[in-house]
Each structure stands twice: as structure tokens, then as C-alpha cells.
Design a protein around this nucleic acid. Structure first.
Lengths: 338, 338
DNA sequence: TTGCCTGCCGAAAAGCTTTTCGTCAAGCGT
DNA sequence: ACGCTTGACGAAAAGCTTTTCGGCAGGCAA
């Protein structure tokens, strides 16, 4: 805890141990060798005085903060919670603390993040954009030490790590088709968002797979959802159920919306999967525990987290690797809802 | 982003604007008045040079980091996610960034947090202990700027903010009794934890309310759960269902476990609430969307968040108020599961 | 006109750690 | 015995901002 006035400094513990601050620093950091005897004296002095390292001073000197920033749309979406958790544990391996910034998926906030206004004290940034897309390169001003989560939206030399959105979406819709469904809807479209966004990619793959199987995609079967929250899923589903000809299967673009959809279905007494099949995307922990348990896409969240912080670590270490683009493995996990 | 070598400093922008670093500082912080004309020159220089404030240097000088730490057991429990989100938005009002530290509910980690080893760069700490309890006062060495979430476990001069655990648990069990249930079980006991912990308080209130209504609490009806995760709830429920005489109602000590219990029930084809009623605790967002929607306790999470950061802000501001203890309002929200 | 106050800003110190430079002694090889 | 390397540590600089101390000019009152 950064104290105000009378905080005890390295010079103080040095004085008590009969050495200078430099030796104290060496003892604490363990970089240089110091005689065991003086080492013990220093350690004892540290203990006696209750000394605590001033990280601000260290950061000022070393130019490293020991903190990275994770910028995501929103902690109301289970996937991002899962992602944040995993990134935190990965970061631990690099002795990093992570601070989470919510952008609310709003363009101005995303720009603010990139411009550095909201991540001052940070060694690097892991950033999942939502509103930003191709053409916004100008906003990443001097942002080395950045890894983008999602499709390659910037032409600049930036690392990207992303899940296989189109392959996964294809997997999901093909599965529904193979199970005999013909009136298949999707929840989660968002026309106001870049073509590289998850929403667009998944919708495109959905449409393509339908077409490839000779099925059409009626406009009223793709329902848009701004936020991908629980209530969006529920609202989307009730809208679909109000249609003269409701769908017999629904592909929700994330698990959170699928949970909402399941709720709407149950509230109306519609049986899942008999009357309407539901498939999600993310394979969040809760997916295993809904009624019925949710069939969904496992997008390789663990890999995303590991790759993202490893890539960032490489950038921070200054290894001049060319900008990398990694794609994680996805798979379908079949449970009971479809 | 803290750059390494050639970063541009206040002196640099000052040089370009024809002033000294001091004036630049004044312009940027807005504390002292500066002539509009020079103000503009400075701002333009900032823009031209792409200057970014070095927060480490500022922190070193001011002794404030602009960051607070929130230490909670675990981000796998919905309540703590909810709490973290709310605390983040409250902290924003004070221009604070919050870093989340997970203790895993493990004693050694909680001690490490208190000792400051894992929250170096922080103006204050909001801490929800789990393993620590009365008698551990010695671990809060020089911890002003601390607010504890939970019952008063330390005798020291520390602010506490807590929910009305016993009142809420009484509410929940009384409701089950009033609905005609007689074989009522509880999931979430934890004998290895302090008597001031949520687990103990809720269990005590549960037992008392049962007794007050002339009901007994068979040992096999209180199932212990170490982690309060989804799987603990499910495991606890299946154990209860395996009993020769299963309960007709279950009080889960948090919503996350209740979700697990709901799953176990559904997997066995047990009807809720007809065969077994389920009641939770926390009123998390998901509770509204389960099937059936979860009857649960609203513990005043919003109040907890607001009070905690306001109290912390007062401590940091050095206002010498006596240690405060605040209790939030709770209520029962009835849905369909009980 | 003199004295005082206010607004604006330069010079310099303070905040604490890490790192560079240098010193001193001891050890080793020849 | 001499030169060289290595180990241990002191002195001091560097890293960048905020704040204190003044100084200077202009305005206002006496």
C-alpha cells in the first residue's frame, strides 16, 4: 500500500543493516550476489522495519509496471468472464497483474482504450474490439505491445489471436441440419457492426451453410441482438415464437443468449429439443448445468488466453517477431438441447 | 503505455511550448490557473509530440496510485462476478481503477493479500475473507485503507460492510416452512471455516429457524460444500436424492450452487418445485433465467458495492471517522423454484 | 506614489528505486 | 611477486512528475 509520508525506504533498512540502499535492492531482487551474512542482516532489517517496496519508484526506474490491461466489452457475458479468468491465471505465470477495462462495446470507449487514456499504468494491452473495424488503423497510435482478440481488423503490425468463427458456426448449423431441422433461426446478428466481427462472421457462415444445404434463410429468422446478454436471448426467442411459423431450431451466437432463449422457451411451455432445438456458442461452465444442458461450440478459450498473453509477453520482451495471427481449435460439444 | 527509452517528458513539451515542466503539469492537472494563451500552446505541444503522462512518476511524487484492490475468493461464483462489476463502476466515480485478486478462499493467499505482498501498487483494499476469522488480527499489519466485506472478524479499527446473513437465511427457511415443507435440507455448510463466515451464519440461522418452528435438522440434511461452485451444488443435490428419505425442499447458500442443484434435479427427472423446492441466495442475473426461475434472496449487492468504495474513499481521504459497520437490506424474491 | 495582493510561471527540491561506475580486497595463475 | 579476474559493496546518477519557494508584473487601495 503506497503510504503517504513517513514510509520506510531502502536507505532506512540499509542504514539499519549497515549497508546502502543498493545492497538492499540487490538482496530483494536477487540479481547480484551478496554475501549470505549481509543478506541475512538486510532481510532482518526489512522485517523489523516492516519495509515495503515502493512499486511506483521501481516502475519509474525500470519502465515496467508489472500490469497488463484486458479490454473487453462487458462482464455480463459469460464468455468474457471465462476469458478474463483464464487470462488472469496465464498472466500470473509472467508475474503480471491484469486490470480489466470494460468498453461496453462502445466505439468511443474502444478508441479511448487504444489511445491509452484509460490504460496509463500498463505494460501492454489485450484488446477485444467490437465496434472498431477495418479503417480504424489510425487509432492505434504507436501501439506496440498490443494483441488483438478477434479477426485481423488492422493492417498494421499487430498480433491477432482469434477463434475459428466461421468454421465453428458452420459446425453448429450443419449439426442442426443433420439432425433433421429445416426451419432454423439465428439470434445475435448485428448489422451495425464490422464485417470482421464475430456477429458478422457467424451469421455469414450460418447463411452459407444453410444455402449449401439448399435451405433458405427467411429475414424474420435472423434476429438482431445488440448486447448479447441474457435478456437479448430471451427477447429474441419470444419474438421468434410469435412468428406465424416459428423455427424448429435456433442457433444462438453465444451461450449467454442461449440461456435467455432457454428461459423464454420454458416460460411458454415449449419443449427443448423436441419442439425447438437450441445450440449455443462458447461452452461456458454454466452450459453444462442448464435444463436441458446446452449443446454448444467449444471455441478454445483456454488457447485464446494462453496465446494472447504469451504473444504479449514476447512483444514486451522486445523479440522482434513478425506480427502473428493464431487461430484456435473449435469443436462441437453435444449435450441435450439439440 | 510505459515506454522504455525515448519517451517524451513534460520538459520536452514544455520546451516546445516555451514554458517549463511545471506549467505543463499545471495545464494537465488543471489545479492552478494558467493563461489561456499558454494553455493552448501547451495543449498543442502535447498533441504534436504525442505526450503521455508517466503515471509511475506521478505516483511516486503524490503517493497515490489511482488503483484499488478487490480481493475475493473466486470468479467462478456468480455473486463475486456481480460484486466485482458493481465495485468497478462505483470505483469509476472516484477515478479509481480496480484490480481483482482471487484468493481461492485459501488461508495463505488471504494472509498474503493482507500483508501487502500481492497488492503493491494500490491505494486501498476491499477484502472479502473466507478462511480468515477472529484471531487473525495480527495479519493486518498497518492496514489502514482497508474495508472488510463480511461480518466483523477483526477487532481492530477496520470498516466492515456486510449483508444481513442471518436475517436473510431466516427469511429463506421460514418461507419454505410456510409453504408447507417439512423435510428441508441445506447445501453449503463448511465446518472448516470461521463462525463469522457466511457459511456458518447462514447455517446457524437455518437451524434456528427450523428449531423455532419445531422442526429438526437431521445431520444428513446439511451437506457441506467446500467451494460453492456449480459442481458442488450438483453433487450436494445428488447426494440428497440418494438418501432413503430425500428432502422436499433445499436451501442453497448461494445461487451458483442452486443452479447446480437444479441441474441435478432435472437430470433425475425430479420436478421443481412440486417434488423438491429450491431456494437460493444472491439474486444473481442468471437466477431469473433458469428453469424454473430461481426463488432467492436479494442481499443488497448494489449497496455493498457502493458502501464499500465510499468507505474506502473516506479512509483514503484521511477522514478520521471511527470504524464503521454497515449492514445492507435483504429481501426475498419469489419466482418459481419454491 | 507607495504598499499589498493576485496571477502567472521559472528554478529547484523531493519522492524512492535501479543501475552504472568505481573501489577494495581476495583469489588465482604464472 | 605481479598482473588479472571475480566478488561485494559504496557513491552517485537517472528516471519523470509534483510541489514549494520565489520572482515579476500588473491592478487596486490608501
Amino acid at each position: 500500500m503506497a503510504r503517504k509520508g513517513g514510509s520506510v525506504t531502502m536507505a532506512d533498512v540499509g542504514a539499519r543493516a549497515g549497508v546502502t540502499a543498493r545492497t538492499v535492492s540487490n538482496v530483494l531482487s536477487g540479481h547480484t550476489s551478496v554475501r549470505p551474512e549481509t543478506r541475512d542482516r538486510v532481510l532482518r532489517a526489512v522485517d523489523d522495519l516492516g519495509y515495503r517496496l515502493n512499486t511506483s519508484a521501481r516502475s519509474l526506474r525500470t519502465g515496467r509496471t508489472g500490469t497488463i490491461t484486458l479490454a473487453i466489452p462487458d462482464l455480463m457475458i459469460d464468455y468474457f468472464i471465462d476469458l478474463a479468468r483464464r487470462i488472469m491465471t496465464e498472466a500470473e505465470r509472467h508475474d503480471w497483474t491484469v486490470v480489466i477495462q470494460q468498453t461496453g462495446a462502445r466505439r468511443e470507449n474502444e478508441i479511448a482504450i487504444l489511445s491509452g487514456a484509460r490504460r496509463q499504468h500498463s505494460d501492454g494491452l489485450i484488446f477485444q474490439p467490437h465496434a472498431l473495424g477495418p479503417g480504424d488503423e489510425r487509432h492505434l497510435t504507436g501501439n506496440d505491445r498490443l494483441v488483438i482478440l478477434g479477426e485481423r481488423i488492422f493492417r498494421g503490425p499487430v498480433d491477432h489471436v482469434t477463434m475459428a468463427n466461421t468454421e465453428a458456426a458452420r459446425l453448429a448449423t450443419q449439426y442442426l441440419i443433420d439432425r433433421g431441422h429445416r426451419r432454423i433461426a439465428a439470434i445475435g446478428a448485428n448489422p451495425r457492426v464490422a464485417t470482421t466481427s464475430a456477429a458478422s462472421l457467424r451469421l455469414d457462415a450460418f447463411r452459407d451453410t444453410l444455402a449449401k444445404n439448399g435451405l433458405s434463410m427467411p429475414a424474420e429468422y435472423v434476429v438482431t441482438a445488440e448486447e448479447w446478454h441474457l435478456r437479448d436471448g430471451a427477447a429474441g426467442m419470444t419474438r421468434l415464437l410469435g412468428l406465424p411459423q416459428p423455427p424448429d431450431a435456433v442457433f444462438c451466437f453465444n451461450d449467454t443468449m442461449a440461456f435467455g432463449a432457454l428461459h423464454a422457451l420454458a416460460a411458454r411451455g415449449v419443449r427443448v429439443p423436441d419442439d425447438v432445438a437450441v445450440i449455443g456458442f462458447d461452452n461456458v461452465a454454466m452450459a453444462e448445468f442448464t435444463t436441458p444442458p446446452l449443446t454448444t461450440i467449444e471455441p478454445g478459450t483456454a488457447q485464446v488466453a494462453k496465446q494472447a498473453v504469451d504473444l504479449l509477453a514476447a512483444r514486451v520482451a522486445g523479440r522482434g517477431a513478425p506480427p502473428t495471427e493464431v487461430l484456435t481449435d473449435c469443436s462441437l460439444v453435444v449435450r441435450k438441447s439439440a
